[in-house]
Nucleic acid binder design. Structure first.
Lengths: 157, 157
DNA sequence: TATTGTTATACTCTATAACTATA
DNA sequence: TATAGTTATAGAGTATAACAATA
């Protein structure tokens, strides 16, 4: 009989397995995106802007579940690399409408291909059905979680 | 027909769904552990030491997949709270053997109960079979990932 | 020489408060 | 007053190089 793994107790928790799995993904994804000058979060922003031209910053922050202040540096990154453009909204001069430049579109497509490849590596050994099941289960868990500002009380045992 | 979600493209990637789900778990788990004066990583360390008395620091770092230098502050946290003890190994005076104090054992059990509760909240809507499937799939993905120091090259598209 | 634990350090990610300019 | 974007800042988390003590 095999000796129990040293972290067997933690392995019973869904969060632990998820963190361990995500760490591996993150390392591979970061390495995948580096040749494109992108980080995980700049890639995500670029893709969402690509798919939703005219998007405003506050909305983008909401979609990606990041705080507005943190988005500023991200968009500066993308703008400095000439991948996106910010144009003042005509109807509301406080807001910017985000769009992808020609250069951004090209890079987005190339990076997408590399990330599709990355995702195939990460899900190696999983059937298409299993991958779909995984996504479905993760989505349900996401709905059960809380957002950082969520101050619901938790009773101490 | 419903409009596609703004992040529909990203939702196809397993890493994105995993990050979103884990964010929700992390926020809830941090709130769960706060009353015990524990963070995710100090809780993990406490549990592993509890289950593996006599463990050395280098080994613990390996088990939890964290860097040795980062473990130092974590163990100082636990030691200052009188939850663990470090005793010089008799056979190797460079090394410490880690163990849980009586106070640590009690807190570990209380925190465990709270985390079991937390995990039930997070997996609400999942059957026991589905939870097990999730763990199994995450474990396979973990094996496909890379470790941070892993410098394997990735071809650019 | 190699290993255990440590120090110092730096970089990323992320959360909050408060500001500005418009509305 | 409220909202869009911004600035400043602070706290985690985490990675690397280099050191002292011991093997």
């Amino acid at each position: 009989m095999a000796q129990a793994a040293p972290d067997a107790t933690l392995r019973r928790f869904s969060g632990y397995g998820m963190k361990r799995a995500f760490n591996g993904i993150q390392a591979d994804l970061s390495a995948t995106l580096q040749p494109f000058g992108l980080r995980m979060v700049t890639f995500s922003a670029l893709v969402v802007i690509h798919d939703n031209p005219g998007l405003r910053q506050t909305r983008l922050a909401g979609v990606l579940a990041i705080e507005r202040p943190n988005l500023v540096a991200i968009l500066e990154d993308l703008e400095r690399a000439d991948l996106i453009a910010r144009t003042r909204a005509e109807t509301d001069r406080r807001a910017y409408e985000l769009s992808v430049t020609a250069k951004g579109r090209t890079l987005c497509q190339q990076a997408m291909a590399a990330v599709v490849d990355h995702d195939r590596r990460m899900t190696r050994g999983l059937s298409a059905d299993e991958s779909a099941t995984l996504q479905k289960l993760l989505r349900r868990i996401e709905g059960n979680g809380r957002t950082p500002h969520d101050r619901r009380k938790i009773s101490r045992a």
